[in-house]
Design a protein around this nucleic acid. Structure first.
Lengths: 346, 346
DNA sequence: GTTACGCATGTAATCGATTCCAAGATGATC
DNA sequence: GATCATCTTGGAATCGATTACATGCGTAAC
C-alpha cells in the first residue's frame, strides 16, 4: 500500500509538503498542491490512520461498552451513538459485555490499549478497579443508561420514576392490587432504581411490595421466565408482573404461555423499555419508553465535550408510559393520566 | 501514560529487553524478566496497540460491515462474529450501513484506513468500485449472508431454497393458492434469490407468481407496510404474504392491523429470518430460520484463514422452516413435510 | 542597495513499539 | 589457556505519519 513517501516521490516534493497538502495547511503553493493531489489520485493513496494516531496521539475513535447487543434497547442506543459520533468525525468501537463483568473488563482494557479518545459505558456491575482507574487516569468517560455511584463521571440516562408512577396509577385504576416486579441485578443502577421507583409508587397507593413479589432477574429472557414461574407457583400469585427490561418480559411471556395462561386475563404484564414488536405481541404490551436515540446523542456530545476540553454535562431525560392492552382494557381517553401516551403503532 | 521507555528505565534494562519480555522471547534471563515484570506492575504499563500495529503491520482487528444493526438477524450475526473473533484473538469493528450504499462505502473506507487485518461484508448493493478495489488489492475479505457475483471472495451464507420449498408445500397444503412475496432490493443477492426460490417452488405446484404479487421492499419495516397495503388494494388480494426479512414482516403486520384485518383468517403471513419475538406475536409467525451463529463463526474462520495464509473456504448452510400459526392451523404432526421443524419456543 | 519580512519548502526529530545486528559474558571443549 | 558456541543484552533502524526549525527566495520598505 502506498505511503506518504511514495506520494512525495511521485509528486517530486518532500513528505512534509504532502502532509501539509493533506491537512490543508495554508502555506503550500498552488502548483505543489496540484502535483500532490495528482500523485495521491494516481497512487490511490490513503493516509495510514495507525501512523497518524501514533504521532498525533488521537485516534478519533470512541469506545462504547454495552451490556447486551441482543437487547433491542441497546442496539438502538448503539446505533444513535454511532450516528452522532460519525457526524462529529469519530468512529465507534462497540464492545458487548453480555452482562458479564469479566467480558466488560476485557473490552474496556482492549479499548484503552487502542488508545480510544473517549469511552461510553453502561456498566454491568458496581465497577471493576480497571474502570475506576480509567476514569481517574483521565480517559474522557461518560456513563450511559446505567452508572456507578461515587465515580466522578458524567451520566446520561432516562429517569423512569414519573413513568413508573403513571404505570402504577394505570394498574391501580384497572383494579390490580397484587403487583410484582422482576428486577435487574442489584449491582446495576437500573436494576435497583426501577424497584425503588416501583416500591415508592406502590406506597402512594397504600400497596405493599412483599419480598415474594420481587423476582431476581439479570436482564436476560431466561431469568424473566424463571422469576415468572416462581410467581405463578406462589399460593397467592400476583395479578401483574412488571419486567424491568424487555428481554425479561419476553421470558415472562414464555412462562405464562407455557402454563397455558393468558395475558391479561390470567395475569397482566408490563415492561420497562419499549420496542417495535410490543405492538404486535399477543396482547400488545404496555411499556415504559425511553428516549433512546436522544440518550445516545447526548452521551456522544458529552464525551466529545470532554475530549475537546469543554466541560461535559450530565443529562437526564424523562421516560414515558405507553399504554397498550397487556394489563387489561385501557381506560377511556378522558381518564388518561397526565403524561401517558396512548400509542398503537411504532 | 507509561511507555516502554519508562518501563525500561524503571527496570534498569533497555527497551529491547522489555519488548522481549512482553512478547515472551526465549532469550531473556530470569532476573531481567522479573525486574521488567515488576516495573510493568509498578507503572501499570500497557503496551500501546497503535504503536505496535504500526511496527508489525497488523492490527488484530476485523471489520464487519452489516446492512442494518436494528435488524435482529444482523445483531445476532454481529454477536457471533465478535465472539468467534475474540476467541481467535481478534477485535471487531462494526460498521452499520443502514442499507445505504454510501454509508457502506464510508465504513469500508475508514476500516481500510485503520488497516484492519480482514473485512467481513454483507453488501447492500452490487458493489462499489471501492469494495471491488479492496478485494482485488489483497485485503483479506469474506462476504457474509449477501455477496457480489463475479468477485473472487469467499462467501458464507445460508441456502434457503429447500426451506422456501417446504414453506410453499406447507401453504399449498393449507389450501392457499394466491401467494405474494415482499422482495428485498434486487441489488442484493438475498433480495433476488428469495424471490427466485419462491417462484421456482410455486412452479412446482403449478402456481403463478404475477408481478402484482411481487412487492418491492428494501428490508425495512416501512417498505413492508407499503407493499402490503398495495397487495390489500388489489382487486384480488393474495391469501398469503411472504416477507423476505423480519422487519418487512413487522411492517406487513402493521399494515394488516391498520385495516382491522386478522392474520391468518383474512390474510396469512410468513417471514424469512426467525426471531424470538415471532413466538409471541399475534399470531405466532411461521418463519424460515437461518443458522445465524454458525454463519458468523464460519465467516470469521474464513477471513482468519486468509489472514494467516491458509486457503479460505466458502460455506453454505441450510435454513429451515419453522411452522407456527400465521398461515393457518399447522398440519398434524404425522403430515409434517421432511425438514420442517415444529417449534413453539425460542 | 541593504535590511527585513513572509512565504514555500525541505531536513530531521518524534510518537512507541519490534527486531536486526553487534558485542560482551559465560561456559564448554580440546 | 585458547577457541568457539551459546546466551543475554543494548544500540539503532524502522513502520508512516506530523511538525518544529532552518533555509532560500522574492518583494517591499527605507
Amino acid at each position: 500500500m502506498a505511503s506518504i513517501k511514495d506520494v512525495a516521490a511521485e509528486a517530486g516534493v518532500s513528505v512534509a509538503t504532502v502532509s501539509r497538502v493533506l491537512n490543508d495547511h495554508p502555506s503550500v503553493s498552488a502548483d505543489a498542491r496540484a502535483r500532490v493531489l495528482a500523485a495521491v489520485e494516481a497512487l490511490g493513496y490513503r493516509p495510514n490512520a495507525v501512523a497518524r494516531s501514533l504521532r498525533t496521539d488521537q485516534t478519533r475513535t470512541l469506545g462504547l461498552v454495552i451490556s447486551d447487543v441482543l437487547n433491542p434497547y441497546f442496539t438502538e442506543l448503539a446505533r444513535s451513538v454511532e450516528e452522532e459520533a460519525r457526524a462529529l468525525g469519530y468512529s465507534v468501537i462497540i464492545g458487548n459485555a453480555d452482562e458479564r463483568p469479566e467480558l466488560q473488563d476485557h473490552h474496556v482494557r482492549t479499548l484503552l490499549d487502542r488508545r480510544i479518545d473517549g469511552l461510553l459505558v453502561s456498566p454491568t456491575d458496581g465497577g471493576s478497579p480497571l474502570m475506576l482507574d480509567a476514569a481517574r487516569s483521565g480517559t474522557p468517560m461518560v456513563f450511559v443508561d446505567r452508572w456507578i455511584p461515587g465515580v466522578d463521571v458524567p451520566v446520561v440516562r432516562a429517569d423512569g420514576r414519573a413513568a413508573v408512577r403513571d404505570l402504577v396509577a394505570h394498574l391501580h385504576g384497572l383494579g390490580h392490587r397484587r403487583l410484582a416486579i422482576i428486577a435487574g441485578p442489584a449491582a446495576t443502577t437500573t436494576g435497583s432504581e426501577r424497584v425503588d421507583a416501583f416500591r415508592d409508587a406502590l406506597r402512594e397507593y397504600g400497596l405493599p411490595l412483599p419480598d415474594a413479589y420481587i423476582g431476581q432477574g439479570d436482564f436476560q429472557a431466561a431469568s424473566g421466565r424463571r422469576a415468572t414461574e416462581e410467581f405463578l407457583d406462589l399460593a397467592e400469585p400476583p395479578e401483574v408482573v412488571f419486567a424491568a427490561d424487555n428481554l425479561m418480559a419476553l421470558g415472562a411471556l414464555d412462562a405464562v404461555r407455557a402454563r397455558g395462561l393468558r395475558v391479561p386475563d390470567d395475569i397482566a404484564l408490563a415492561a420497562f423499555d419499549d420496542i417495535p414488536w410490543f405492538v404486535h405481541t399477543d396482547p400488545p404490551i404496555t411499556a415504559i419508553a425511553q428516549p433512546t436515540p436522544e440518550l445516545g446523542r447526548a452521551a456522544v456530545r458529552a464525551v466529545v465535550d470532554r475530549i475537546e476540553g469543554r466541560p461535559p454535562q450530565s443529562v437526564t431525560l424523562p421516560a414515558t408510559l405507553v399504554v397498550r392492552r397487556s394489563c387489561g382494557e385501557p381506560p377511556a381517553m378522558d381518564s388518561t393520566p397526565m403524561n401517558v401516551t396512548q400509542r398503537s403503532n411504532p
